[in-house]
């Protein structure tokens, strides 16, 4: 197995996104590419990443392998790469991860025993969809955060708004379809869902810089799925369970 990236931004974004949920990560490499799927320890959020072989400058994988890393240790190495530096990873016979950063930095990092079990994906229909720039979404999360720990998303036909409510007050941000940062608002049924900013904010910050447009899909009182479109990466799906009246 060997994979070489083109620049370091995509791998940084992936590792940064994963680091918002877990401390240890198991990646699966197959002939098709590298994937990761995992949940945070309290099972509120799930990340599903698929990184196709076509996104790499060089990629080879003769037989399927799993390898586990401590995300903070891996992250430290990856951060030593400049934007343009490629990062090449392979696995040594001594079961170490070989990480070549740029042309001349050759790291060896210990792998951890991977305890990963197959995680399924939430099976839910999505009634509503909002596509907007990640920078706009990041700004909206910041706007809501000043009064609330939770983001409520509401759609009705082709209208939508984000809102939040807390001890100090509340906010409603109407989405303007003429805004060039907003690509689409659509709903098969009026939908309203509330989601924790504690989970949303870090992942949007982590991937936001590399993602252009993001797609939020949800249904009333059902999980939110955010798709980050990163130029070179197949997909990053982030699932977040809702908060519901109890």
């Amino acid at each position: 197995f060997g994979a070489k990236t083109n620049g370091s931004d995509d791998l940084k974004a992936i590792i940064s996104a994963i680091s918002t949920l877990v401390e240890e990560a198991t990646f699966v490499a197959t002939a098709e590419g590298i994937s990761f799927r995992g949940m945070d320890p309290s099972h509120v959020a799930l990340i599903d990443i698929s990184w196709p072989n076509s996104a790499f400058e060089k990629y080879e994988c003769d037989s399927d392998i799993k390898f586990g890393v401590r995300i903070d240790e891996f992250s430290k190495l990856i951060k030593r790469a400049d934007k343009k530096d490629s990062i090449e990873i392979s696995i040594s016979e001594q079961n170490m991860l070989l990480v070549t950063v740029g042309k001349n930095k050759k790291y060896k990092m210990r792998l951890i025993e991977s305890s990963a079990t197959d995680t399924p994906l939430p099976k839910i229909p999505y009634d509503s969809k909002i596509m907007l720039s990640s920078s706009k979404f990041d700004k909206i999360l910041g706007d809501v955060q000043v009064v609330s720990d939770y983001l409520t998303i509401h759609t009705s036909d082709s209208k939508g708004d984000f809102s939040g409510k807390g001890d100090s007050g509340e906010v409603v941000i109407d989405l303007d379809k003429d805004d060039e940062d907003i690509e689409e608002i659509s709903s098969k049924e009026d939908s309203v869902g509330t989601y924790s900013l504690e989970y949303l904010n870090p992942v949007v910050k982590a991937v936001g810089n590399t993602a252009g447009v993001i797609t939020c899909e949800f249904s009333s009182a059902k999980p939110l799925r955010i798709e980050f479109k990163v130029a070179n990466i197949g997909r990053i799906h982030f699932y977040l369970a809702p908060r519901v009246e109890s």
Binding site: S42, L46, T194, P223, A241, S246
Partner: peptide, 11 residues
Amino acid sequence: SQGQRDITSYF
């Protein structure tokens, strides 16, 4: 009041 749901309950 509101409660946080678990993502695994949608598997």
